[in-house]
Every structure is written in structure tokens, then in C-alpha cells.
Design a protein around this nucleic acid. Structure first.
Length: 536
RNA sequence: GCGGGUGUAGCUCAGCUGGUAGAGCGUCAGCUUCCCAAGCUGAAUGUCGCCGGUUCGAAUCCGGUCACCCGCUCCA
């Protein structure tokens, strides 16, 4: 059955799951607000993750499939970090591009990816420049172009090869080359900052620029030593965090899938380098299972190992957990979580400085002056193994999940239109969210079958008892009971409890199952236990 | 960013060639109802996305803008 994203979006708004951000002002692209039910749903997703990663983890026993027992601790770090964090981590360089648009063909180019050949005269003036597509590392000029440039270079001049970014930096006043594809005019290179810039201090100027974090991970790396020194953890252990991150996505689209403000659920798992491959496999499989354990069908989920050429330059292996979102084309999947084997890249970066891959080895990137381009903290982030007396930089496995994406996937997965009989036994279509009870925003609804004969009072009692047990419950006495069941189906409430005439005689109520529509009678005083058991 | 489409009540949508807005569902109140939406009665709700222009008059025409959808581009 194919699900319509429009229908899901419409339900999300109609029942208060997700609203467009700043809706009454016309909306903000790339930002979304969660309504009452969406807030409960997302909180359940976060809680389920946190319980799995932190609270329910038993560090005394190795879980099935794990190489050994391990510890898990949580942190909550600031959204704004020292600007040097992003320079060392590589985000500053990577997220910070200069782009030029072609006024003719409307193509947009990253200026560091456009090759330029320029004729420079003996006096250091640019006489002419030609731009090339980034495909060739060393562009070969056509003979005519070569001649043209040679001619303009003049006595004592030379033809230099560079890229557009370096070119404009070195010759700020030189005329720009034309578009490498169509020959049209290019705009001046404009700064594209994929990180959100902000300013510290009320009088802050450019020197006080800071960034909203584009990922929560760096908060964990930067606190790795603090955690080690303060919480008696030993390798292997994980640091977990749930929090907001911000990226200036160029094309926010597909409902909440690609938002500019989003929430991450990340684990940075530190281990011995010689065991890191095993841990990578362990986390990859365990995180995949978390989604299926919470109601995502295995047929809609894939674990996709990145190809070698797809890997970031420091990564030994990365696998995406991807979901078959309804807004994607047949056969396409959208990323929910990336599980990356990051080696010692992050800790070394924050110790030594920004690293680059040179012939397969990570080295500190040097600036033009021969010093580290973006120096690290200078603090040793080595781990001392007291048993083996070894000192080393741990390797990191990073399962990085999107809370909003997971929430969206659970919503899409749960959405279904099926058929249920009406009072005459005729089949009618029914909209139902088949949430796993653990993440369903409302766990149970309580109805008086009719609003008289003391039924509302009895129902209110049961409702109160469920609330006191800390459960999210709904009460509804409006209209026909069948309609009330449908209302709850539409928001995915797993259990409906109905007080009827028999309740007043023998103290039993009916409990009705969202998925099977089956009813059974249980004593009213067992309702709370019944619902809790259902949630598991 | 480009091209195309859309934007009217909470939701889905109708409003033809300009004359100051409607349906269904939902919601709310009441009745009915001892178990699965479309029984009955009644009610509320729209600056027709926003700004500007043309016109005596614009939801309807024009321009701009914002948002959403589709395709391309991008996705660290």
C-alpha cells in the first residue's frame, strides 16, 4: 500500500503533531513546530533512545553481540562552543564555501572547485583568465586559449593555474573569468556559511562571531577528558547526548526531514583501536535493531554500508540506517542515522589541530606560514590503560541519529488507512496510526459508554488512576462511542477503556485494542496494570 | 538557486468570462445511543497566504513577496 505524504502532513497538522513554524506570519522555511501530540511523540522517541542508550544499560554484563561489557554516560553540552572547536573539527573549512553563480546559465559553483588559468604579466597584473569545470585536476587549455593567454602574458609574465577561490583572494581587483560551462558572466564569489553565525555579547562585532553547533558530537569530544577524569569510566565507554543542532541547509524540503534546526541523538563510543572494528559492527547492528524494536518494519528499513569513495577522508567505515519515506521515489531511502567508525580523527583533531589526509595518513594541516592552519587545544587526549600500561588515543564509533527524522519515520510507518465495520456491520475506511505502544503519544483513552447513570463518574475515576500512574491518557464522552474509538485510532492510542452498565454491576470494563478492534472485559482496578503491560 | 504547480473556514476542496464567499468532513452545545465514523437539532469559525497595482468595484486580472508540492541543482 502506498502512503500519501500529503495525507500524513494533513493529519499531522489537523491533530496537532506538526505545524509550520511561525505559521500565522506565513511560515519560516526549514523550521517546524511540534503541537501537543507531536511533542509527546517526539519526547517518547527521545526517551526510548535515552533509556536504551543510558538508563537501562547494564555496564556489568555484556549485551548480546557486544565484545565485552561497557559503560554509558550522558552529557548535555552548550549549543554555542568556542569558535576554535569548529576550526579544529574541520567544520569551519568544510561548511564555509564561497560560491559564484552564473548570470547566464544560473549554475552555481563552489569557487574552490572551479579551476582557473590566468595570464599574469611581469607587473603582476592579470591580463586574462579562463575558468574550467572542476573535473580536471590540471586543466588543459585548448591551443587557442593557450595562445590567447600567452599573448596577453607578455614579456616576463606567466600563466598560472589555480582555483577561483584562490584567484579572487590573490587578485581581488582582477576581472572575473567567465562561466566555465556557458561562458556567461559570473557573480562575485559570495560567502555561503552552512553554520549559523551568531554574535556573543551585546556589543559584539565580527571578532565576537560564534556558531550554533552543526552537530552535538563535538560537545562530547571536547568533554571526553572531563568525563574520563570525573566519572570513573574506563574504556570501552560511550558518551551520549540529545540536543538541538543547526545547519543552513541549502534546500530544506520534505516536511521535517531536512530542517535547519533539528535534534540529534548521538553516541560517541570510545574503545581500543584494536577492537574498534568489532564495536563498529556491534553498534551498527544494535542501532538498526532499535528501530525495528520500536515498530519500524524491517521491509522499510535498510542498513547501507558506504562505499569506499563515499567515506569521509578519516572514516574507516560508515553505515547509514535508512527508511523508505513515502515522499521518496520508489527504491529510494532517507537517512535516519549514520553509524561511523571515526578512528582517532576527532580526539587527535582537538589535541593536535585540524587534520588532513596525506597519502592515507592523517597529518596536521599546515597554513601558508608552515604552522598548523587550525591548531588544536594542545591538551593530550591520550588514554592510559592501567592494566596494560599502554597509552593511546582511543578510536571512536559514532551512532548519530536524527530525533526529528526518527519521529517522522515512526509517524509515516504508523500511518495507515484500513477498513473497520460500522454499526450496521458495513466496512468503512478508518485512519489509524499503528504506533508501537512505547512511542504512542497517548497510551489509553477512557470513555463512559453513555454520559449518564454514573458512568462518567466511574470513568473519571479510572482516568485519574491512569494519570496518577504517570500515563498519558485521554478522556472522551462526546458523541457516539464508535466515533470516539475512531478519534483515538487516528492519533494511535493503543487501548480504549469503556465503562458500561456492567461496570456498575460487577466492576469490570471493556478494553478495546486499536489494531485488532477486539474487546475483552477486565476488572476496573486492573486497568492501569493492563495498560502498563501493553506498553511493556 | 532555476523551472513548473499550488495557497479560499481546523482538514479536503468548489467558487465559470471581476460585483464584497460556499460545500463536505471535523469542532462545539443539546437530544438520541449499552460498543466501533456519515442518527436528529442547533451553533461558532474566514482580513480568500501577505503587500502593492489596475478598476466604480478583485478571491477572481497584473506585479512583487512568503510558504508548500513536483522536477533539476545541492546535500558537508
Amino acid at each position: 500500500m502506498s502512503k500519501s505524504m500529503d495525507d500524513i502532513t494533513s493529519l499531522a497538522k489537523r491533530r496537532g503533531f506538526v505545524f509550520q513554524d511561525s505559521d500565522i506570519y506565513g511560515g519560516q522555511q526549514g523550521f517546524w513546530d511540534y503541537g501537543p501530540l507531536g511533542t509527546l511523540l517526539k519526547r517518547n522517541v527521545r526517551d526510548a533512545w535515552w533509556r536504551d542508550a543510558v538508563s537501562e544499560h547494564n555496564e556489568l554484563i555484556a549485551p548480546a553481540g557486544a565484545p565485552e561489557a561497557f559503560q554509558m554516560v550522558g552529557v548535555e553540552t552548550a549549543i554555542i562552543m568556542h569558535p576554535r572547536v569548529w576550526k579544529s573539527s574541520g567544520h569551519y573549512d568544510l561548511f564555509h564555501d564561497f560560491m559564484a553563480d552564473c548570470k547566464g546559465c544560473k549554475a552555481r559553483f563552489r569557487t574552490d572547485q572551479v579551476a582557473v588559468c590566468a595570464a599574469v604579466t611581469a607587473g603582476g597584473e592579470v591580463a586574462a583568465a579562463e575558468a574550467f569545470m572542476p573535473t580536471d585536476e590540471t586543466p588543459n587549455l585548448s591551443k587557442t586559449k593557450q595562445k590567447r593567454l600567452d599573448k596577453k602574458t607578455g614579456e616576463g609574465g606567466e600563466v598560472i593555474r589555480t582555483d577561483l577561490q584562490a584567484f579572487t583572494k590573490r587578485f581581488p581587483d582582477a576581472p572575473l573569468p567567465n562561466c566555465p560551462t556557458c561562458g556567461g558572466d559570473l557573480t562575485e564569489p559570495r560567502e555561503f556559511n552552512l553554520m549559523f553565525k551568531t554574535t556573543l555579547g551585546a556589543l559584539g562585532g565580527e571578532d565576537d562571531a560564534a556558531f550554533l553547533r552543526p552537530e552535538t558530537a563535538q560537545g562530547m569530544f571536547v568533554n571526553y577528558k572531563n568525563v574520563l577524569d570525573s566519572s570513573r569510566v574506563k574504556l570501552p565507554f560511550g558518551i551520549c547526548q540529545v540536543g538541538k543542532s543547526f545547519r543552513n541547509e541549502i534546500t530544506p524540503r520534505n516536511f521535517t526531514f531536512r530542517s535547519r534546526e533539528f535534534e540529534q541523538m548521538e553516541i560517541e563510543f570510545f574503545c581500543r583501536p584494536d577492537a574498534s572494528d568489532q564495536w563498529y559492527q556491534y553498534w551498527r547492528d544494535r542501532r538498526f535493531r532499535w528501530y525495528t524494536d520500536h515498530g519500524i518494519s524491517e521491509s522499510n528499513l535498510i542498513l547501507r554500508e558506504h562505499h569506499q569513495e563515499e567515506l569521509a577522508h578519516y572514516s574507516v567505515g560508515t553505515a547509514d540506517i535508512e527508511y523508505k519515506f513515502p515522499f521518496l521515489a520508489e527504491g529510494e531511502y532517507g537517512e535516519l542515522e549514520g553509524v561511523a567508525h571515526r578512528g582517532d580523527f576527532d580526539l587527535r583533531s582537538h589535541s593536535e589541530g585540524k587534520l588532513v589526509n596525506r597519502d592515507g595518513k592523517l597529518e596536521v594541516e599546515l597554513g601558508e606560514d608552515g604552522k598548523p592552519k587550525h591548531p588544536g587545544s594542545g591538551k593530550s587526549l591520550d588514554y592510559f590503560d592501567a592494566e596494560t600500561k599502554e597509552k593511546f588515543v582511543p578510536h571512536v564509533i559514532e551512532p548519530s541519529a536524527g530525533a526529528d527524522r526518527a519521529t517522522l519515520a515512526f509517524l509515516c510507518e504508523a500511518y495507515e488507512v484500513d477498513e473497520a465495520p460500522d454499526e450496521k456491520g458495513k466496512m468503512q475506511s478508518r485512519t489509524v496510526l499503528r504506533f508501537h505502544p512505547k512511542i504512542a503519544p497517548v497510551k489509553a483513552a477512557v470513555f463512559p459508554l453513555v454520559k449518564k447513570d454514573g458512568m462518567p463518574e466511574k470513568a473519571a475515576e479510572i482516568y485519574g488512576a491512569l494519570k496518577r500512574a504517570g500515563l498519558e491518557v485521554a478522556y472522551d464522552q462526546q458523541g457516539a462511542v464508535g466515533r470516539r474509538y475512531r478519534r483515538q485510532d487516528e492519533i494511535g492510542t493503543p487501548v480504549c477503556v469503556t465503562v458500561d452498565g456492567e461496570t456498575l454491576e460487577n466492576g469490570t470494563v471493556t478494553v478495546r485494542d486499536r489494531d485488532t478492534l477486539e474487546q475483552s472485559r477486565i476488572p476496573a482496578n486492573e486497568v492501569t496494570a493492563f495498560v502498563q503491560d501493553k506498553i511493556g
